[in-house]
Amino acid sequence: MIQTIVQKLTGRGSTLRAAEHRFIIIALVPTILFYLIVKFYPIFFAFFISLHEWSLFGNVSPFVGLDNYALLAKDSLFYKVMWNTMYRTFAGTFLGALFALIVALILNPIKRGSILLRLIYFLPVMTSVIASATIWKWMLQTRFGLLNQLLLMLGIPPVPWLQSTTWAMPSVIVMGIWAGLGFTVIIYLAGLRGIPRDYYESAEIDGANSLQLALKITLPLLKPVVSFVLITGVIGGFSGGFQAIYMMTGGGPLDSTRVLALHIYDYAFERLFMGQAASMSFVLFAIVLVLTLVQFKLQRIDWEL
């Protein structure tokens, strides 16, 4: 009985037994239900919320059409938030990718101590960002923080790192690079391992020096990995930064470190403008979607080369 139903459903009854079908169905039905309820329905619900003036406590949530989106387009704070998000994303991604590349290129040929070095560079990746941001906030404290005390010993006057509109964002970016560097290094090392050793050996026989090896062999062959790191870094950057900024500056001073993820949280759960916050999350969704499609295109091109 089951077998005939399943055969009709799958059209491949001859290769699978009824027991296998039952196994697949028992596993897949709850999965699909879960995804419908927890992963797909909320997206439509979020869009529905974004069309309302939704607040948590008032029972009245009037329908306002696309007004929330129109408000964003006129909101100078939102433009500032988008600028901050892009500043943090691009500066953090490109500098992080560059430093990680340098570390990986030097670390790759090393044998003695390489496991210990990889472990050390990887430590911040494993650490809770809430905890490491707390340490950075302490190290960057204006009067008693380690950095300013060391600068003072060199005769340099203290800089209010996290209280200055100029320095707060660079500080947050440097902390982010520190936290993510080890991860990128490991990705580069995996990419470097994929380059055949023979290329280097034959180039060395031809008398190439190590700089030439790096520029003529390693970097061109590593190009797909670099572009992968950059694009995924930019995609992640647009929705990232919440924990570090929440702990270190709270978005200040004067909104100079207010990024999109923090702004959405703040509007939804501190100011309780859920409709407005939902519309921002859709702007974020659109950006990420476009960048992901770009990534798919680029990766294909890179691999055809």
């Binding site: 927890v38 997206i43 619900f45 919320i49 995609i235 929705s239 859920m274």
Partner: peptide
């Protein structure tokens, strides 16, 4: 690919 921020409010 969907950022968690999209889910935050509806969930």
């Amino acid at each position: 690919i969907i950022p968690f921020e999209v889910y935050l409010i509806p969930l």
